[in-house]
């Protein structure tokens, strides 16, 4: 069981780091949102799942509470993260930021 927790923590750390690096590496707002949202959500799923496994494995009142609360935190994160990034992308586009080197921009044509 320990090995499973280590693997999950490692995957979570790697993908969270990938999100942070993507934030630095990509050229404009939209591609940064791509990298940051996808990678941090995926990494957080694995990191928090490691905590959930650890909580259920330890068992009892405290372990169970830890696992259930971590699961609820994961649920809220899954719900709010894509919605927040969607709102940011929409706000950025309405605020007049154009995608970098875009081959097509249908949303701009609409206005």
């Amino acid at each position: 069981m320990n090995v499973l927790i280590y693997i999950f923590l490692a995957i979570g750390a790697v993908f969270n780091g990938l999100g942070a690096v993507a934030l630095l590496r990509f050229p404009d707002v939209y591609t940064r949102i791509h990298g940051a949202t996808k990678c941090t959500t995926f990494g957080s799923i694995f990191s928090i799942l490691a905590v959930v496994i650890y909580g259920f494995w330890r068992g009892g009142g405290q372990g169970g509470t830890l696992a259930v609360h971590a699961l609820i935190a994961l649920l809220f994160l899954l719900l709010t993260n894509p919605t927040g990034s969607h709102a940011l992308a929409r706000g950025a586009h309405r605020g007049g930021i154009r995608p970098f080197r875009a081959v097509v921009d249908r949303l701009e044509e609409k206005r």
């Binding site: 928090i48 905590v51 830890l66 940011l88």
Partner: peptide, 26 residues
């Protein structure tokens, strides 16, 4: 360079803070 970039970075930091808090709880 723009305010939107900073907002995206802040959003990422928020997600990382939540994950870190759960890990610290364990």
């Amino acid at each position: 360079p723009t305010a939107a970039d900073r907002a995206v970075a802040l959003d990422t930091v928020n997600t990382l803070v939540v994950t870190t808090m759960v890990l610290l709880g364990a």
